[in-house]
Design a protein around this nucleic acid. Structure first.
Lengths: 242, 242
DNA sequence: AAATAAAACTGATTTGAGTCAATGATTTTA
DNA sequence: TAAAATCATTGACTCAAATCAGTTTTATTT
């Protein structure tokens, strides 16, 4: 059995840390349509691994043989682009399936993922995953929905990154983080200024400048590393106006 | 039967212009795995329409109920972004399936498509398409591959657009056009300077400037509206160096 | 073929955003 | 707990790229 280098060398933490896919079945809508046999096929070569803060879960460029499902914790996904610049694609919380187009195409991972804090992930062998896709059309339907959603989001970000200027992009990032990731008006201290810069594709200095400016205008409040959205309406306004 | 506005008003050209899906079956690898029954299901509510140069085939924001397959001709796909700026996603030639994530999600089209020259397209009802996806796992496998490819390309472009500067982006555009779309060193006169600007997300003036510069350096040759790649190696070099 | 419209080009100017350099604040480590 | 390291912040400067204002060329129309 081949393992990706990123958990092959960590035997101590390679343990079956969750009871089985039955749990995930209940929590992740994607796996809902699967019956016992299909679940056990996915369960067969599954592994769960606990990662510490800052540890690499997936590395861009390595052979993409596993999908990854976040079971608990918090991670970020980014592309290592030109001149070592990062572009953060997503922050991910439990029950999200990650792996990207590379896994399905049996190629290399197109992005890296690192744990933002202690994170438990489940590695699902792509081959088994594909077999189950062929067996269960309701499952493949949901998987296509997931792919469509990813693609759709990529298109939206493509436009945002290439056509909006800094204020608009920062507004987008803050809206994304507060509404999609945190589900509340306060963005946690795990998110650094550099992260925001990497998400919005600008220099850290510029990101800080804009954040400070938004604070001066009473649209956000900065306290240490946390960011609190004070005026969501104006933030959306800035996002739209670019 | 509901039709998209874009061919509802053109009764004169609403004709069954191709014999049936049997042809497409042979030409488009995506449809290869389909049997007679599945093809006829797709064939049932199918329409083919001929569009003139400049005519809108799909309009961003309208209800996405059809996939579109290019049968003959040449078209371009673009997103209408902020402040009426366009971002060209792709140029498309025959046997490419277009529609984007919107169709599968039963939402709105996320982009527009216009004919670059006389183009024959086939509209395939999304509902039937989905039914066939559920029936034939080999077909859905190929469809997922297509989705993965689209997503993958979107990620790559996201990085290019946000991290490369003008020279690198122009190089990317020229490589894409000559290698992927034209399959030869000469890019046709259908591609305007504005198109190249819209593909690379820069002003037309800047695009022209860089092209002229590349001509001065004997990397390309400009003759009227056509662009000939003279030194592909150096162009790839510029693309990589950003 | 002249008139008009649409693209393609070019130089001058402005500006958005990156870089650099230095300082302050916080966290981690020895 | 002091030292080191990391992260946040700010102002000054630079540069890439957009805008503007024309001119030239190429299509289209009458």
């Amino acid at each position: 059995m081949t393992l990706t280098p990123y958990f092959n060398n960590q035997n101590s933490s390679v343990r079956k840390l969750c009871a089985g896919c039955d749990q995930c079945n209940e929590r992740s809508p994607l796996f809902h349509p699967l019956n016992r046999d299909e679940l056990s096929l996915i369960n067969k070569d599954r592994y769960s691994v606990r990662f510490h803060e800052g540890e690499v879960i997936l590395k861009q460029g390595t052979q993409a043989t596993y999908y990854v499902s976040i079971v608990e914790g918090f991670a970020k996904i980014y592309i290592e682009g030109h001149l070592d610049r990062r572009l953060i694609l997503d922050f991910v919380r439990p029950w999200k399936l990650v792996g990207g187009p590379g896994v399905y195409l049996n190629e290399k991972y197109r992005y890296s993922m690192v744990a933002v804090r202690e994170t438990l992930v489940c590695f699902i062998q792509a081959e088994n995953f594909k077999k189950v896709l062929a067996l269960n059309s309701q499952f493949s339907d949901r998987f296509i929905i997931l792919c469509s959603y990813n693609y759709s989001r990529a298109l939206e970000r493509m436009v945002g990154l290439s056509q909006k200027q800094m204020h608009g992009r920062i507004a987008d990032a803050l809206i994304y983080l507060s509404e999609e990731i945190y589900g509340q008006s306060t963005i946690g201290a795990e998110i650094s200024r550099q992260d925001i810069a990497d998400y919005t594709s600008m220099s850290k200095d510029s990101a800080i400048r804009i954040l400070k400016e938004l604070e001066r205008d009473a649209i956000i409040h900065l306290e240490g590393h946390t960011i609190q959205i004070l005026d969501s309406r104006r933030l959306h306004d800035i996002s739209v106006k670019g």
